[in-house]
Amino acid sequence: KRRTSFTPQALEILNAHFEKNTHPSGQEMTEIAEKLNYDREVVRVWFCNKRQALK
């Protein structure tokens, strides 16, 4: 499976959402994914990886 390359704009939006809520609901992740035109699973993994990076 290929790595997803996030655009700077997408990272800005993802980081803004992460600052508000580090554990978004499934519905929220779906909405973010649709807004950014990414697969929901990609957004889920991004949040998971971001949380791990802060440990």
Rank of each mutant, 00 (worst) to 15 (best):
F47H: 00
D39C: 09
T4Q: 06
N21D: 08
L36G: 01
L54Y: 03
A10L: 03
T30G: 08
R44F: 09
V42W: 08
R3I: 15
T30K: 07
V42K: 14
V43L: 06
P24Q: 01
N49I: 06
Q27N: 09
P8H: 07
E31G: 11
F18I: 02
L36T: 04
E34D: 03
T7Y: 02
T30L: 06
V42Q: 09
N49D: 08
E34T: 12
K55R: 13
Q9M: 11
N49Q: 14
D39E: 06
E41M: 03
T7D: 03
E41I: 03
T22Y: 06
K35E: 08
S5W: 09
Y38T: 15
K35V: 09
H17D: 08
V43F: 02
G26K: 09
H17C: 10
R2E: 15
A53I: 09
R44Q: 14
Q27L: 14
T30V: 07
L11K: 04
F6M: 11
N15G: 09
R2S: 15
A53C: 06
S5A: 13
R51W: 05
E12S: 12
F6Y: 07
E31D: 10
P8E: 10
W46N: 01
V42E: 13
N15T: 06
V43G: 00
T4K: 09
H17F: 11
A16M: 13
Q9D: 09
I13L: 12
R3K: 12
E28A: 08
R51L: 13
A53T: 08
E28S: 04
V42F: 10
K1M: 05
E34G: 04
P24F: 00
A33G: 05
W46E: 00
T22L: 12
R40T: 12
K50T: 06
L54K: 08
Q27G: 11
K35D: 08
E28M: 02
P24H: 01
P8K: 08
L11Y: 04
T30Y: 05
I32M: 05
A33M: 03
Y38S: 14
I13H: 07
H23W: 09
P24R: 00
N37P: 06
Q27W: 08
T4N: 10
F47D: 01
L14C: 01
S5P: 11
S5D: 11
A10V: 06
A53P: 03
R44I: 08
L11A: 05
Q9A: 12
G26H: 06
Q52T: 11
V43E: 01
C48W: 13
K1H: 04
K50S: 06
Y38F: 08
A33T: 03
W46Y: 14
T7S: 11
H23N: 12
S25A: 07
S5T: 15
E28V: 09
L36V: 12
E12W: 06
R40N: 13
S25R: 09
V45P: 02
A16N: 13
N15Y: 02
F18Y: 15
T4Y: 08
E34V: 07
I32C: 15
N21Q: 11
D39H: 09
Y38D: 08
Q52C: 09
R51Q: 12
F18C: 02
L11N: 00
V43I: 06
T4E: 14
Q52V: 07
S5N: 10
Q27E: 14
E19H: 09
Q52L: 12
R40Q: 09
P24N: 00
F6C: 08
V45C: 06
F6R: 03
R40D: 15
T4L: 11
E34M: 05
E12H: 15
E41W: 04
V42T: 13
T30N: 07
L54M: 09
Q27D: 15
P24S: 02
K35G: 10
F6G: 04
S5V: 13
G26S: 10
E34I: 15
R2T: 14
R40C: 10
L11R: 06
E41Y: 04
G26P: 12
L11W: 03
F18R: 01
N15R: 06
L14H: 01
N49H: 07
V43D: 01
A10T: 04
K35S: 11
E31W: 08
L14G: 00
T22A: 13
E12D: 12
V43Q: 00
V42G: 11
E19Q: 03
N37I: 04
E19N: 10
L36M: 07
K1W: 05
T22M: 12
S25Q: 04
E12Y: 02
V45G: 14
V43A: 02
E34H: 15
L36P: 02
A33S: 09
N21K: 04
A53Y: 12
R44N: 06
A53R: 07
W46A: 02
A53Q: 14
A10H: 03
Q9E: 03
K35R: 11
R2Y: 15
E34C: 15
N15H: 10
H17L: 12
A10D: 12
H17I: 12
H17Y: 10
Q52D: 09
A53S: 13
E31T: 09
F18M: 01
P8C: 12
E31F: 02
R2N: 15
F47L: 01
V45F: 05
R2C: 04
S25C: 06
H23F: 09
E12L: 03
E19I: 14
D39W: 02
T7E: 14
R3Y: 07
N37H: 10
Q52E: 15
P8A: 13
A53L: 10
A53G: 12
T30H: 11
P24T: 02
S25V: 06
F6L: 15
S5G: 14
L11I: 15
T7P: 14
Q52M: 07
L54G: 12
N49G: 08
G26Y: 05
